[in-house]
Design a protein around this nucleic acid. Structure first.
Lengths: 342, 342
DNA sequence: CTGAAAGCGCTTACAG
DNA sequence: CTGAAAGCGCTTACAG
């Protein structure tokens, strides 16, 4: 029933090594034999077992990817970058979806290792001590994408979240906004939460803008959280007088825009919104969302290059955080205020 | 450098089989030995090679998934369903991204097979003869998700696209629309293109509505295609008098809504739109999109169950197309017309 | 309870 | 040009 290299050898009346050679170094085998073997292999629908082969022969490198949640809007773009780079470099990629469950994430790390990954790309979720405990025993290079772990001496590729947040506020200020609110991620999230908030806070100070707690609301990055947080912000508008809101994710920005709409106000005429991510949908909503672009595909590709370098440097791979350039994508959700309104 | 079961055995002063037992049937080995081996394995950071193991022992089934384009909005949901079901059933999943390239798709099929997939879920792209030529030699069950291949005797899980399109028109008619346009996928696409158009056409006949070529425009499912197609439809509005448009994908529907907006018209007051898919974003745009829901996660899960059944039935797996129920999700993009407007 | 032997499907020196 | 032998990392009867 099961057809292996051996079945082919028997049918063709040659030895197993000969069949192997037909597939791996055809030039070493006599033309007639080769063609006979090929024909037999074909008629038997033989496919070599790549896993058995990998046991003996040097194999294509395998990149393991740990996804925090595969459904995330940006994950597809990140993975797409990983896949493109891997295809170009003749590597295979193995994916594991943690489904937002950190226990499952830890299992995933072990799974990827046991499946012979030669390196791992760990995405988006903050590195916890429990994760690092595992990572450090893996003895294969691990690179972080869209998250950071400098305290563990891990290398990561991301944008400078703090600076990007600072720039978002700067953009708003340049357009005349002086009262700016923020919808932030949770502070426990050191990357997309805390550091984006810090950049925001720093910018307010830098530009000498007022700040009170009523200018801030929180959400877990999803649409409905953005909606609820905006409702909160709107309820304090009499005291805060905000004319613009910076949001820690595009999805929350879109929720916020809807909330504004439902309150009978308009974006950007009454309130301006600037998002964060530049996921594909931010260009599909009306008004189109002005936002901070994260180069997801590029981050995926850089992560792959890093792993490749780490293998060659075998052992002492450089650590540190590599900031890839972010950029402001100007679209339709931010209005320019005339000066006398400040 | 490389630590295998053998390294552990040597360090622990036991044989290789004993180490193997410690990991696979710990109850068979003496407690002290077991604990010593565990300790050594731990200190050496030993992880068993699951691929070598699979060569000898009965392994967890592997499901290969061929994605047509991983970035597609709905693919994440489909894959999420596959992953959940696979995790529950103790199966592993292997993913290959064709990146819209049918040559790469064919390579992917072979890749998945050679990597020892026990079954394959083939997604979304129509089955071509070249694909089937490969599929038929794989000798493992292949199930289609969101596409169809009854001419090849393949089993598939999807919704009844034709019926769903018919229902979309029915919904519009029930709300008083008599002049209905469509933005269709390409006719060469037998699933999302041709069959949805057929359902549309049939419904027009069934409800006795007029039809001319000017009521139809085409696009490749993306936002910009929807936009362009809508511009086309709008340019003939003086003759077609359409008050509603049925669209073959949500993404095109969203593009169409933007086009209407840019022409100074409003959805749904001036033109109603009904989409197809119910991807996550259709609930995030304004107006929220009324659309046909495809149960992506469920389709993913059913595909997994099918493969499981096919393995047990070993050999003669049932073929045929299984239609999962679609549903109309009523949101904000369709207006109810008063009768005298018809 | 533990080890020696055989083997999973393949590859790669080594002879001839 | 081709085969016999050894081995990749592991597991599983079979003895003892």
């Amino acid at each position: 029933m099961k057809v292996t290299i051996r079945t082919v050898a028997e049918q063709a009346g040659v030895s197993v090594p000969t069949v192997s050679r037909v597939f791996n170094s055809p030039e070493l085998v006599n033309k007639v034999t080769r063609e006979r073997v090929m024909a037999i292999a074909d008629s038997l629908h033989f496919f070599p077992n790549d896993r058995a082969r990998a046991l003996r022969a040097p194999k294509r490198p395998i990149i393991g990817v740990l996804a925090w949640q595969i459904k995330d809007f940006f994950f597809g773009e990140l993975l797409s970058g990983i896949n493109k780079a891997a295809a170009r470099e003749d590597m295979d990629v193995l994916l594991f979806d943690a489904q937002l469950d950190s226990k499952r994430g830890m299992d995933g790390l072990v799974f990827l290792k046991r499946q012979q990954s030669d390196g791992i790309i760990f995405t988006s979720s903050p590195v916890l001590d429990e994760y690092y405990a595992i990572i450090s025993r893996l003895h294969i290079p691990v690179v972080l994408a869209l998250t950071e772990g400098s305290q563990y001496n891990l290398c990561s590729f991301k944008i400078d979240d703090r600076k990007a947040a600072f720039d978002a506020v700067g953009y708003l200020v340049a357009r005349g906004h002086r009262h700016i609110g923020m919808i932030s991620g949770p502070m426990e999230d050191t990357i997309a939460g805390n550091s984006r908030f810090s950049g925001f806070r720093e910018a307010l100070r830098h530009y000498n803008l007022t700040y009170t707690d009523e200018q801030l609301a929180f959400g877990q990055y999803r649409y409905e959280h953005g909606y609820a947080a905006m409702a909160d912000l709107l309820s304090h508008r009499d005291v805060t007088a905000i004319t613009a809101v910076f949001t820690a994710s595009d999805e929350m920005a879109i929720g916020a825009m809807r909330c504004i709409h439902d309150h009978g106000l308009r974006v950007p005429e009454d309130i301006s919104i600037i998002g964060f991510d530049n996921v594909a949908v931010s260009d599909m909503v009306t008004p189109k969302l002005t936002t901070i672009m994260q180069p997801f595909e590029r981050i995926g590709m850089e992560s792959v290059s890093y792993l490749k370098k780490a293998w060659n440097a075998s052992g002492d791979s450089s650590s540190g955080t590599y900031f890839l350039p972010h950029r402001i994508i100007e679209r339709e959700s931010v209005a320019t205020l005339s000066y006398d309104s400040s």
